[in-house]
């Protein structure tokens, strides 16, 4: 194990704990879909993105959008860990007076644009990438999509545009956790072969274990993979990853953890850490 791997794994573990803690708050949260993208966010914010928490609006920054805005818990935890705002603020999630809304809002340092309604992030990111190209900046634009989100037609409008505009500094990640609110995504709207689908839209495509932060970081750092083509990384993930009693289950979608289940979840995370 490398030091870098230790670090990314440790960061991911802390983010996962914050997510679990927030789901034990009064409102609960989108637990499963937040836990499935923890390694993606860790890799991005702790290895790949050119961002400076002290200057979140720096014009040359890389831009990230959480198109699957319901995973706000994971984004907030990542931004706090990365130093965009105090970790202590996470305890206020969803509570009156907090700025941590259930879907990302611009009031939170590090959030570029609000998301939550699915199918918006890819077009917005195309706009970022296009504007950067016009400005002559080499910044990259990253966007994280849910796999259920791919059922929104606007995703494919933007996929066509990105390829047509040859936006090769645009990188999409699909959190392919396989489950949506009521069941398996493949049963509700089959998308496989997903990689072929993206490839046929003119994108460079790679697939990866979405819980391997090192590999995620390697792929993301290397983009663009093909000159003139936008890149999409299909991250094979597990909804609710890290919590044995919820992982891979449809009912992990939105959870308010009771004190008992909160303790159980923290114990499960601790056991995973110990095993590592």
């Amino acid at each position: 194990m490398t030091t870098a791997e230790d670090t990314l794994e440790a960061v991911a573990a802390r983010i996962r704990t914050h997510v679990v803690d927030m789901c034990a708050g009064p409102e609960g949260g989108h637990l499963g879909g937040a836990l499935s993208c923890v390694e993606v966010l860790s890799a991005l914010y702790f290895s790949v993105l050119r961002v400076d928490p002290r200057q979140p609006g720096h014009p040359d920054r890389d831009r990230f959008l959480l198109s699957k805005g319901h995973a706000a818990l994971a984004l907030y935890a990542t931004l706090a860990e990365r130093g965009f705002f105090p970790v202590g603020e996470l305890a206020g999630y969803g509570r009156p007076g907090s700025r941590l809304m259930g879907h990302p809002v611009r009031a939170v340092p590090g959030v570029e644009l609000p998301t939550g309604s699915l199918g918006h992030g890819l077009a917005l990111s195309c706009g970022f990438a296009l504007a950067n190209r016009y400005a002559g900046r080499d910044s990259r634009s990253f966007v994280l999509l849910g796999d259920g989100e791919l059922q929104e037609g606007s995703v494919w409008e933007a996929a066509i545009a990105a390829a047509s505009l040859r936006l090769d500094r645009l990188v999409a990640v699909v959190d392919r956790n396989g489950l949506q609110l009521t069941g398996p995504a493949e049963r509700i709207a089959p998308m496989e072969p997903l990689a072929e689908r993206w490839r046929s839209f003119g994108w460079a495509v790679r697939e990866v274990d979405g819980h391997d932060a090192i590999r995620l970081a390697d792929h993301l750092a290397a983009a663009p993979w093909e000159p003139g083509r936008p890149s999409v990384l299909i991250a094979r993930t597990v909804k609710g990853h890290g919590l044995s009693f919820l992982a891979g289950r449809t009912d992990s979608h939105y959870v308010t953890l009771s004190p008992r289940n909160h303790a159980r979840a923290l114990a499960a995370l601790a056991a995973t850490d110990a095993a590592r």
């Binding site: 918006h120 077009a123 606007s154």
Partner: peptide, 8 residues
């Protein structure tokens, strides 16, 4: 969407 991203 693209217009909004560029305006941002």
């Amino acid at each position: 969407g693209i217009a909004a991203g560029m305006a941002a």
